[in-house]
Design a protein around this nucleic acid. Structure first.
Lengths: 346, 346
DNA sequence: TTCCCGAGTGTTTGCGATAACACTCACCCC
DNA sequence: GGGGTGAGTGTTATCGCAAACACTCGGGAA
C-alpha cells in the first residue's frame, strides 16, 4: 500500500536523531540541549550530564546545515589551489588542513585547471557557494594576482605566494632572499658568474627567484646571462640542460626547483660534465628526495608547513574580524650538500 | 546610538540577496525563483528571463545551507586520506576532485595523522558532521581496513586500495599483477632470482606487491630471499641499499616504489655496483621524475587518475542508490627504461 | 514581608530554501 | 456549455538549530 512514488527504492530512511529526540530522552527542552553543546556552563551539572548521556545513547550529531543557517558560520575553510600533485602546493595544503583541524575547522578544496582571472574567481565561487567562512588561495601565478583583485570584498581571503598589490594578506617564502642566498653561495665558491634555469614566465616565485639571483650578480658586478625558462619539470630541466651543457663558461648554475635540477644533473652527466667538479648546481625547495640525488643536491629549503600554518592563522584572524599582518615572509634556508663545489681552475 | 553589543566591530553586514529579494525584483514568488534555478523547463520563458535578470542584477547565489537542510543533499564529497604530500595519494585526490567538479560536486578533505581504527572513524566523523553525501577513503593500510568495518552503514563509502573484507566497493590498482610483471621482466632478462625492497608492514599495497613478487618466484621455482622493508622514502631505500649492496648474488631487485629505488640506486653506486650492468632495478609508481633518475628507471606505472575517477563514479552511484561493482581493478603497466638489463655473466 | 535579582530553563521565532499541495487560467473535448 | 486537462504560478509547511525573550524559582536586601 505504499504510495506510487520514487521513494520505492529507499524503503525507510533510518531517521537519525535530532536535537528534539535528545531533549525528549533527557526530559528537557531542545534549547537546553543546544546550550549543553554550545555553552555548557549555563546548564546545571546534573542536567548537563543527563543530556550528554542522551546524546551518547542516540549517537546524536548536530546537523551542520541547520547550524550554519542560523549562525551564519560554517566552520569550513576553502582552499583554492593549482596542481596539488606538486610537492610544494601539496605540502602547503597539508599544513593548512592540519592547522584548520586543530582549530575545529574543516577544509574544502577547489583545484584549478588553468591559471587565469576567470578560473580563479570561479574557484572561489565554488567555495563561497558552499558557505565557507574564509578562503586561502595557493596559486602563485601573476594572472591569478589579477583575478584576486575582483573578489567579494567582505570575504576573508589570504593568499600564499601572491605578488604585490592584492587587497588582502599574503604569506610567502622570501623567494628573493632564498635565490640571493643560493647565488651568493655559488659566488663564494669562486665561480665568476652563475647561470640560472628559471621557472616559467609569470609565476610569481619564478620571477622572485630570477630577481634575487640577478640582484646579487649585479651587486657584485658579475656578468648576467639570460635565464632559461623551464616548466618546473625534470623533463624541462633535462632539455634545457642539454642546451647548456656545452657552454664552456658554465661552471655554476642556480636552478629554480629541485625537479629541474634533477633533469639538469642528468643532462650534464650525459654530456660528460661532472658535478660538482666541473659544474656546480644549486636547486630550490629541498624536496625529500634531494638528499638522494646524484650527487646530493645543495638547495634552498622552503618551509611549506610554516607557510600553511601562518596562512591559516591569518584567515582565522580575518574571520574573527582581526586585521593582522598584510605581508608575512618566511625565511628560506640554504641546505649545503654536495652538488656545489669550488670553481674549477681556469 | 548603537546598542552596546559585540557587533560594534562588524558595523553593518552588507546583507546579501536572498531568494525573496530576487522574487520581489522579478515580480514573482520565491517559489518561482527556486523553480527557475532547479527546474527551468517548468517556468514560462519570459518569466524565466525576468527572474534570471533579477538574479544577475542582485548577484544572487543560493544559500547552500538552507538547501541542504531541506533537500538532505549537500553536493559535497568527503575524502579521507593519509599523507597527501606523497605523489600517489596527491594524484588520486586530484583526480577525485576533478571528477567531482565535472559532476557539480565539491570536495572536503580530512587528513589523518595516524593510521588506525580510531583515527579513520574520527576522520569520517569530521566529514559526516559536515553533511557530505559520500566519502572516499584513501588510506591503504591494514589497520584502516579494520576501522572501515565500523562505519555508519547507510553512508555511501568507497575505498581506494583497501584490503579484502571491507563492506563496500573498493577501487585499486592491481598491485599483485604489477609486481608480478616487474618480477617476470627481471627473470626474463636472465636473472636467477629477484630480491625485493618492500614497503612498510601492514600497508595493503606493500603486502600485495610482496605477494605478487613472491608468487612469480615460486611459480618459477626460484629462490625467495626475505624482503627488506623500507618506509617508502628515498632515505630508507638508501639505507637498506647499503646493506644489500655487498650481497654478491644480488643481480636484480624489485623495489616497492620509485623513491626507495632512488635511494637504492645511490647506495649501489656508492658501493661501486653499476646499474644496470651489475645490478638491475625495477621500481613502482612511475613518478614523473623516474625517467630522469640515473639511470632512467624501469618501473610499473600506476594510473592514479583513473583510480580517482572510478572511485568518484562509484560513490556517485552509491549516492544515487545504484549498487555497482564491489571491486574494481586498474591494470598497471610496466614501463621499460634503462635500470634493468641482462644478467651479468655468472 | 516585599521586592528584586539572577541562575536555570522553556517558548517562540526565524534563518533560506524546497516539497507538497492549491489555485488559476486557457484550451479542448464531447 | 460543462467539465476535464495541464501548464504555470502561488501558498503553506517544514528542515534542525540557536537567538531573543519569557518564565520560574530561591535567596538576599530593604
Amino acid at each position: 500500500m505504499t504510495t506510487p512514488s520514487h521513494r520505492g527504492d529507499v524503503p525507510h530512511r533510518p531517521k537519525v536523531a535530532v536535537m528534539e529526540d535528545v531533549a525528549e530522552l533527557a526530559g528537557v527542552s531542545a534549547m537546553t540541549v543546544s546550550r549543553v553543546l554550545n555553552a555548557p556552563e549555563k546548564v546545571r551539572p546534573e542536567t548537563r550530564a543527563r543530556v550528554l548521556a542522551a546524546v551518547q545513547e542516540l549517537g546524536y550529531r548536530p546537523n551542520s546545515a541547520a547550524r550554519v543557517l542560523v549562525t551564519g558560520r560554517s566552520g569550513v575553510l576553502g582552499v583554492v589551489s593549482f596542481d596539488t600533485t606538486q610537492y610544494g602546493p601539496a605540502s602547503t595544503l597539508y599544513a593548512i588542513e592540519r592547522a584548520a583541524r586543530q582549530n575545529e575547522y574543516s577544509v574544502s578544496i577547489a583545484s584549478l585547471d588553468a591559471l587565469n582571472r576567470k578560473s580563479i574567481s570561479e574557484g572561489v565561487g565554488r567555495l563561497t557557494s558552499q558557505s565557507v567562512d574564509g578562503v586561502i588561495i595557493v596559486a602563485p601565478h601573476e594572472s591569478a594576482t589579477d583575478g584576486l583583485r575582483h573578489l567579494p570584498p567582505d570575504l576573508p581571503v589570504v593568499a600564499v605566494d601572491a605578488g604585490e598589490g592584492v587587497p588582502f594578506p599574503v604569506v610567502m617564502v622570501d623567494q628573493h632572499a632564498g635565490a640571493a642566498r643560493a647565488t651568493r653561495h655559488l659566488l663564494s665558491l669562486g665561480h665568476r658568474t652563475v647561470w640560472h634555469l628559471s621557472g616559467p614566465a609569470n609565476w610569481v616565485d619564478a620571477s622572485a627567484r630570477i630577481a634575487g639571483w640577478r640582484s646579487v650578480l649585479e651587486a657584485e658586478g658579475r656578468e648576467v646571462r639570460e635565464p632559461l625558462a623551464g616548466d618546473w619539470s625534470a623533463r624541462s630541466g633535462h632539455e634545457l640542460g642539454r642546451r647548456l651543457a656545452f657552454e664552456d663558461d658554465l661552471t655554476a648554475i642556480f636552478v629554480a626547483n629541485d625537479q629541474m635540477a634533477m633533469g639538469l644533473l642528468r643532462a650534464l652527466r650525459e654530456a660528460g660534465r661532472r658535478v660538482p667538479e666541473d659544474v656546480s648546481v644549486v636547486g630550490f625547495d629541498d624536496i625529500p628526495e634531494a638528499a638522494y640525488f646524484w650527487p646530493p643536491l645543495t638547495t634552498v629549503r622552503q618551509d611549506f608547513a610554516t607557510v600553511g600554518r601562518l596562512a591559516f592563522q591569518l584567515v582565522l584572524d580575518r574571520i574573527d574580524g582581526v586585521l593582522g599582518e598584510r605581508r608575512l615572509k618566511v625565511e628560506p634556508e640554504l641546505v649545503v650538500r654536495e652538488s656545489a663545489g669550488v670553481s674549477p681552475p681556469g
